[in-house]
Amino acid sequence: MWQFFLDFYGYAVFFYSLGLIISYVVLMILAYRGLFQSTDNMVDDYAYRVVERSPYTPGVSIVAPAYNEEKTVVDNIKSLLKQKYPKFEVVIVNDGSKDSTLETMITNFDMVPVDFAYVEYLQTKPFKRLYRSTNPLYEKLIVVDKENGGTKADPINTGINVASYDYFINTDVDCILTEDAIYQCMLPVMRHNNVIAVSGMMTMSNGCDIENGEIKKLAPPS
């Protein structure tokens, strides 16, 4: 009888200790994962704050060609201007559009032609003129008018000739960028001195509800 109680007590202590050890191991694994994830978030948050406040944050030019985009150009430009990055500009290159793309941009963004010393670092079709906005809301917007180059590379090269900053994002004017797109592109560049280019992921916006250049509701294309 006493042997039964001793065996029962021994097994109880063994399984209790085993369960306690397993629970401690599980808690350690969960704590490690939580600490690791929190550290990543803290690093990202710290990087965002540094980029936001530092006088050494590199500037970025968003260069986008526009050809016959009169129906969507206004919303798309507003989308590009919503970037949450302290130092950027948006360079829209009107590549000899045959519709009212240029006139639509001039009217909706209060653009006026300004004197500009255009230097052709990269050879392109002839540059015509450069426009800037009289509205402070669009001070980061630059519109370039040029003759049609027949390829996407030609207006992109014109935009690079005009760009004020060393880094540039090559996109289309009908693309909608997330508000932190520049951050996501520039953080790897600033963290590692051997990164010279970053690519993004593209998805279709057909079927989505878009308002003022911002996706309000995600939905797949029909």
Rank of each mutant, 00 (worst) to 15 (best):
D174Y: 02
A66Q: 04
Y121A: 04
D99N: 12
N94Y: 05
I156E: 02
F88L: 12
F116A: 07
I92S: 00
K125P: 07
L187Q: 10
L187F: 09
L218D: 12
N108S: 08
L187G: 00
K125D: 07
P220K: 15
A219T: 07
M190S: 08
K128G: 01
G150S: 09
D145H: 15
M204V: 11
Y183I: 02
E52T: 09
M111W: 02
I160R: 12
V162I: 14
P65H: 01
F36E: 12
K84Q: 14
Y138L: 08
H192A: 12
I176E: 02
D110V: 01
N206F: 13
P221R: 08
I22D: 01
D45T: 10
L20M: 09
D45K: 14
E147F: 12
F14K: 12
M1G: 14
I106G: 00
G19A: 13
I169D: 01
V90H: 03
F88C: 05
A31D: 13
S97W: 03
T72Q: 08
V93R: 05
F109V: 02
D40N: 14
F168G: 04
Y138V: 00
S199W: 08
M42R: 14
L130K: 03
Y121S: 10
Q83I: 06
K125F: 03
D99I: 05
L218R: 13
P126H: 04
Y167E: 01
V91R: 05
R53K: 14
Y9Q: 09
G207V: 07
E179M: 08
I92P: 01
D75N: 15
V173P: 01
Q123A: 11
Y48L: 15
A153V: 08
P65M: 02
G207Y: 10
P126A: 03
V74K: 11
D40A: 10
V90T: 04
Y85D: 02
N135G: 05
F5W: 15
Y165D: 08
D172G: 10
K152L: 15
A163M: 11
V50D: 07
V13R: 09
V50W: 01
K87P: 00
Y67Q: 08
G59L: 03
L30G: 03
K98C: 10
L80N: 01
T72K: 03
M28F: 11
I62D: 02
V112D: 00
E139F: 05
K125Q: 10
K128S: 06
P65R: 00
G200H: 05
S61V: 06
L80D: 04
A181K: 07
L122C: 01
V73L: 07
L218V: 14
N76T: 06
D115V: 09
T104Y: 06
V51T: 13
F4M: 09
Y118C: 01
L122Q: 06
L187I: 12
L27V: 08
Y11I: 07
N108C: 06
N68A: 10
T178A: 08
Q123R: 14
N94W: 10
I21F: 11
Y85G: 02
G213W: 05
D40M: 06
P155S: 04
P58K: 07
V63G: 03
A47V: 12
L218A: 13
T171K: 05
D209I: 13
D154M: 06
L177Y: 04
T107C: 00
Q3N: 14
K152V: 12
V51S: 02
I176W: 02
